[in-house]
Design a protein around this nucleic acid. Structure first.
Length: 264
DNA sequence: AGAAATGTTCGGCA
DNA sequence: GTGCCGAACATTTC
């Protein structure tokens, strides 16, 4: 789940439940998700603090405290935020009790997500080596960073130090909508193709955000609704292929996504 | 039972 | 120094 559009949705949960609230108490349900310092220390840093701001950067949600420290949420492959409403989530790892007695749960099923503290957003971004956010970068930033990679376009799109926010699913989606084969070399794209890719990326992210990153609500012409080997391509009726490209499963349509001269 | 899964990090090797 | 690949991480789900 957690790529840029998912994290956008988690930010909305955070803003609704926790922004401008004070942390009354903190329950560490599994200290392994706390990075850099132990659970006790995180607790003492957060107790009594107020969440004064939140912003998304790539796949991270960065929350500013009234102490000016920044709490970074990262969601791994199976994480999300849950404004508790009834039963607690079975896989919650950190639970925030807010001053209005509501609970915000940080959930990470596979334990691959992490919470960490930094002294500023700038330091955090620098430490992680994050590139500009996929939604906020300019066309010039995008094209120059993408064309600087001799790797496949898919791995360039997934490289968080180039552009932050796309993961395996949305990079496949963007390439599908742009009619580009995931294995084409990033530095072999024409100027026209790069510009088109940039526009397609913004449109895909925008549509995903509008549908709360929920695949079942997205248009049928979206690959993520047909992300299965042998499934029918919604655009041409051909079969969806599955290949390993730069270490991850890539789904694409052999017919729509040509290695040479992508249409559009 | 075995494989695959939305992510990041790190060691090793060109 | 750079950049890429595979493995590791931990657990659930198909």
């Amino acid at each position: 789940m957690p790529e840029l559009p998912d994290v956008h949705a988690f930010k909305e949960v955070f803003d609704n439940v926790a922004l401008h609230k004070r942390v009354q108490d903190l329950e560490i349900n599994n200290a392994k998700v706390v990075q850099g310092l132990n659970g006790k220390k995180l607790k003492s840093h957060l107790q009594g603090k107020t969440f004064v701001g939140s912003e998304r950067r790539g796949k991270y949600l960065l929350v500013t405290l009234d102490s000016d420290e920044v709490l970074a949420f990262h969601f791994g492959m199976t994480g999300y935020l849950y404004g508790r409403n009834g039963e607690p989530d079975r896989y919650r790892r950190v639970t925030f009790l807010l001053d209005d007695n509501r609970y915000l749960e940080y959930v990470s099923k596979r334990m691959l997500g992490r919470l960490s503290l930094s002294d500023s957003i700038e330091h955090f971004v620098e430490e992680k080596g994050l590139g500009p956010d996929a939604l906020y970068c300019t066309e010039e930033q995008f094209t120059s960073r993408i064309s600087a990679s001799s790797n496949s376009i898919k791995s360039a799109l997934m490289d968080q130090s180039r552009i932050a926010g796309l993961g395996n699913i949305y990079s496949d989606e963007v390439l599908y909508q742009a009619h580009l084969h995931p294995a084409v070399q990033a530095d072999s794209l024409s100027d026209k193709q790069r510009k088109s890719l940039f526009r397609v990326m913004r449109r895909v992210l925008d549509v995903a955000i509008r549908h709360h990153a929920n695949p079942t609500e997205m248009p049928d012409g979206y690959l993520l609704r047909h992300r299965k080997k042998g499934e029918k391509c919604p655009k041409c009726g051909g079969r969806i292929q599955k290949d390993t490209i730069s270490g991850r499963s890539s789904y694409y349509c052999d017919f729509c996504q040509k290695k040479q001269g992508g249409k559009n």
